[in-house]
Lab assay of single mutants.
Amino acid sequence: LVRYRTISKIPQITLNFVDLKGDPFLASPTSDREIIAPKIKERTHNVTEKVTQVLSLGADVLPEYKLQAPRIHRWTILHYSPFKAVWDWLILLLVIYTAVFTPYSAAFLLKETEEGPPATECGYACQPLAVVDLIVDIMFIVDILINFRTTYVNANEEVVSHPGRIAVHYFKGWFLIDMVAAIPFDLLIFGSGSEELIGLLKTARLLRLVRVARKLDRYSEYGAAVLFLLMCTFALIAHWLACIWYAIGNMEQPHMDSRIGWLHNLGDQIGKPYNSSGLGGPSIKDKYVTALYFTFSSLTSVGFGNVSPNTNSEKIFSICVMLIGSLMYASIFGNVSAIIQRLYSGTARYHTQMLRVREFIRFHQIPNPLRQRLEEYFQHAWSYTNGIDMNAVLKGFPECLQADICLHLNRSLLQHCKPFRGATKGCLRALAMKFKTTHAPPGDTLVHAGDLLTALYFISRGSIEILRGDVVVAILGKNDIFGEPLNLYARPGKSNGDVRALTYCDLHKIHR
């Protein structure tokens, strides 16, 4: 019993810090008490220290592992850092350059016999395009090294910054494609005289377009951006097909006994025919423009016929181009109408809503002055909100995010209106959640004399007048207030005048 009563005193000691020596009952000389009392004092002292730490809000209350900052290894790049964003855009520009100039170089340097010394005699450094290609190869190699040090988000939505895990993730992902696209074939085969082989191998750079397509997928929600990307894709495919079309004609031209190829026909049409040795002929500019003209006309199913396939190889390629053109029509131009419709969806919704308003007016036989006010209010409210119901949009977000959005939407009023000066951010967040926005066209009466005042109004834009009878008592403008002081009276009061809008007004109100 003594032991039980001794232990039962522990909660009292913990909360009230009572010393055991003052209790005459606990001072009985028993061996059990002498053993338990020192333990009680020690526990009391420890609990006292913990309570003191909690009340003082000291940093040592938290466990040590929670006080440590997340460790980022040296030379690790955050995937959302500004440097990584700028670097990704730079790589994107280099990939676009590669997609345009690599097929052009591979096709127009394929057994090209233009006048001038061969590239091997001039030297590697004197070729501007080769120098640019070398810079692109170096940048792609540097990009691989950067990807080995860039964080990523795993399946659990955690940012991984450990170098080993980053390397394994990159090896399992895009490393092989990036490595093949970054191989400097110019340096590996330079001086061997195989410019045709170098041009063909350099087309491996186009593998990076797969990554670019995935990154550009984030802009699919913007109709104008999608339309622009589709047109660029169409032009890029036409450019690639033009390079292939020229390569076919250029390879067949020296081996044909009869002059029936499209390059021969082009030379005869523009007065620059090929001679018996295969030299001469149109310039590279004429060849490229004509090839691009043929691919565009074939892809769009126009086909004027002034550039036509004559050999079997050219006919087979033309059939493939027609098939590609039909697929592009289905996948690209078939979506253009939907994209344009999405661009004008706001206008369509406006006309639909206006039609419903006019049908309501016609069905209920609203008189002319009231009908005009109804239409003007709808037009003004639509121009202010673009038909978007803010309350319906915010309803799907958590309250903390709703408060931040409301604070942002009402920031101008909260910053410049005098009653809100000096208020804490928590108070402003709470008030912003209570605001209701209303609009009024010129001549609209917001409050009639004798109406119950259940709200306090803040003028965000425009001006109003307060009338008693036919006498203008006051004219209020931006950041002015009218209405009933909230919670100042037990019952809502009545208006002693009319409140009429002089201009288009936007008002925020808080109800009782």
Rank of each mutant, 00 (worst) to 15 (best):
V132N: 01
P82Y: 15
I183T: 06
L327N: 01
Y350I: 01
M251D: 01
V160R: 01
A99K: 01
E112N: 04
F378S: 06
K425C: 04
I361D: 01
M256F: 09
G443N: 10
G325K: 01
F435Y: 02
H439Y: 01
V136R: 11
D257A: 11
S105Y: 07
C232A: 11
L323H: 01
L428S: 04
R362G: 03
V302E: 01
Q127I: 01
K202C: 01
Q402V: 04
L299H: 01
P70N: 11
P442W: 01
D444I: 08
Y170E: 01
C400N: 10
A224C: 14
L374A: 06
S161E: 10
A181M: 01
G396C: 15
F397G: 03
R371L: 02
N312Y: 01
A204I: 05
A348Y: 07
W89M: 03
W245M: 01
V289T: 01
G346I: 05
A338V: 14
P184D: 01
W75A: 07
H73T: 11
G199Q: 13
N154M: 09
L94D: 05
L201G: 01
T290G: 01
V160M: 09
M231P: 01
T76V: 07
I284G: 01
G123A: 06
G303L: 01
Q365W: 01
D444C: 08
G443V: 02
G271A: 01
D133P: 01
T385F: 04
G123I: 05
H439G: 05
M433V: 07
I339P: 01
R356A: 09
Y246I: 13
F190T: 13
L145K: 01
G271H: 05
I366V: 06
T437G: 04
K172H: 05
V95K: 01
A381R: 15
F185W: 05
L230N: 14
K395R: 13
I146Q: 01
A432R: 01
P82C: 15
P309T: 01
C243L: 01
A204W: 01
Y104G: 01
T233S: 14
H416Q: 13
V136C: 12
E64Y: 12
Q127W: 01
L145V: 10
L78K: 14
A330K: 07
